[in-house]
Amino acid sequence: MFEAKLTDGTIFKKIIEAIKDLVTDVNIDATPTGLSLQAMDSSHVALVNLHLGMEGFERYRCDRNLTLGISITNLAKVMKLVNQNDSITLKCEDEPTYLTIVCQNQKHDRTTQFNVNLITLDSEHLGIPETEYTSEITMNSGEFSKLCKELYALSETVEFEISTTFVKFAVEGEIGSGSIKIQTSADEAETSRPEDTVKLSFALRYLNLFNKAYSLSNQVKLSMAAETPLVVEYEVESLGTLKYYLAPKITD
């Protein structure tokens, strides 16, 4: 059997909220060491990768590896039943046809249970090799989210440039061109690999979808290397990581 309990169920709710506009049907892999999920968006230019380690759960038991095919759209509807401060328990039998979700308030006088039907999916699994990212930056997730939203009003595409002393987000649209440059000496941002600079362009529409995860972590880590998808990574406190990958664009 499989059973995983999180004291703060809103974390799981936030994760589902943060991926539901990117991926619809996914396989969640439950193993004795934790839960993971990897799925591409319908146009195959973005990829979501989630890993939650068993240590972060209040209770975790998984007797054998299970693949839980689930509609994220439907799971997001069920997550509406999770209230602030509720715990959440996910459980199923060894050959499951549904996943049971139990939410309980702190006083233990209100329990909500819902069985979500599982589906069989033929999903492609992509192997992501160990990549040496030449540019990495960690910045405030709220600031990154705000910046992407504001730039999207000006352009569909943003060019990222990360150097030794600054990170620059440049846009060019019908109304003109401009950039936001953040010095790395400022508290908001810091580079860990100062030696190289990479410039890559990305679709702001996707970055805005990724930024739905900003409430999961105060910080976001951006990793880039030439001709490689951008990695936008949120650390989910003591539980694991939510990573988004985005293929770069060619600017004409």
């Binding site: 230019v45 990829l47 492609e124 992509l126 595409t157 362009s201 293929a247 060619i250 004409d252």
Partner: peptide, 14 residues
């Protein structure tokens, strides 16, 4: 502008 490639070009299907 367009995409350089979809994810399949970067990562191997396993």
């Amino acid at each position: 502008s367009k995409y350089q490639a979809t994810m399949e070009r970067y990562y191997k299907t396993i």
